[in-house]
Design a protein around this nucleic acid. Structure first.
Lengths: 224, 224
DNA sequence: CGCGCCATGTCATGAACCTGTAATAGCTTC
DNA sequence: GAAGCTATTACAGGTTCATGACATGGCGCG
């Protein structure tokens, strides 16, 4: 149903919630600390982050702020009973909802659903390829949950290539389709654009995973 | 899911929406005129009425008033481009929501759900996006609790964009849907209107949070 | 009937940002 | 090692958009 990243240091709570959410068809990834969570979020394109407030190392509020700084992923905060629970602080940090522990799994799940309903009232055609997420409605691209800003021509190129994963396109085809040029001249234009795109979406631009070179022919997207 | 009565005279729109709603597990009854609609409503216990404004015979506003006089069925109004956009009329007639045509089926369905949620669950009086509240029934907009007066065209633009949060619309699409224009000329008209809208609803118009520019493509609402 | 306000469309300006090109370096294949 | 192909980088011209001023035209009100 949804991709959930659970950041919670107590192993028993973590395991219980993970099991419960998985039992309801969510994909769950979990982390035991804020640092670990932020790192995982960079790879796991979560729809929503369930975030405990009391964490070893950097605390929940700070994690929340850092997530917000980087992406618009929804955040549900978990506060343990007895924590100094500051609604204003939570709001300012940018959480979308709060749940007080002990939390029954079905309650948490209902909150997650509510948050997701709110943020994507209209389901958009989102395609995920590994850690890369391409949203064709909002024309946004994110890599590991972090939004990547792409200039128009690079975005068009990515949209075009990713619409047919695995298919090889010649430079000429791309010039005609993506650029709408008719000229038949030799041009390294496509190459340059591919480079700039790779620099933004690939983890290791030198070993491209998404936009691959097919020597002598052109480029293709994936296969991932 | 819900019982929907669709009152719409254009057969192609009627069929398209009927199919789409049935595909999403709603029971749909349709009528081609106001009279027919009122008659069917008397037999078909609809949860919600989707009502076109421009109808042969008695018009949408009048149908709306008659439905309101007799029952509390929810009403979602549909206004075609070129319809006389009458804020006062919409207010007085008592619709629960207001959608500008052309409408994508999933948007209509989302709005139907929203209306039903509102009426049979926890009352959720307005749609809230961050500090911005858009009341699609009374056609009022408030920002941080303070009401904002918007001229018709700006209100219409906001309603159209916010009906599909995240979706990017080209200037051409907006000219066709929100304005009555069919011409294909280059025009900065949309820009100017967006500009004026931003000045009224954005906290920092230079860093828009609600109506965002997608360079090379157009504009979108949020995602917040 | 005339006045003035407001909504809307058009235009000029400037800034920020793309993007095509070219030059160079690196890699593959034979 | 040479030829052919691709990666990488820098830069200047060009495009796109924000902004604000101005023109127009409708509408209500005096």
């Amino acid at each position: 149903m949804a991709r959930v990243l659970l950041i919670e240091d107590d192993p028993s709570v973590r395991d219980a919630l993970t099991l419960a959410l998985k039992g309801r068809d969510h994909e769950v990834e979990s982390a035991a600390s804020g640092e670990d969570g932020l790192e995982r979020l960079a790879r796991f394109a979560a729809d929503v982050v369930v975030l405990d407030l009391m964490l070893p190392g950097i605390d929940g509020f700070e994690v929340c702020r850092r997530i917000r700084a980087a992406s618009s992923t929804s955040i549900v905060m978990l506060s343990a009973r007895g924590d100094d629970f500051d609604v204003v602080g939570g709001l300012e940090a940018g959480a979308d909802d709060y749940v007080v522990k002990p939390v029954r799994p079905q309650v948490l799940e209902a909150r997650i659903r509510a948050v997701l309903r709110r943020t994507d009232g209209v389901p958009s055609p989102v395609e995920t390829y590994g850690a890369l997420c391409v949203d064709r409605a909002s024309l946004t691209v994110s890599r590991g949950g972090r939004q990547v800003a792409l200039p128009p021509i690079e975005l068009r190129l990515l949209l075009y290539l990713s619409a047919s994963p695995g298919q090889v396109f010649s430079r000429q085809q791309l010039l005609e389709s993506v650029w709408e040029h008719d000229y038949l001249g030799d041009s390294r234009l496509v190459d340059a654009c591919v480079q700039r795109l790779r620099a933004k979406i690939e983890d290791v631009p030198a070993e491209p995973r998404y936009v691959q070179t097919v020597r002598g022919f052109g480029y293709r997207f994936g296969p991932v």
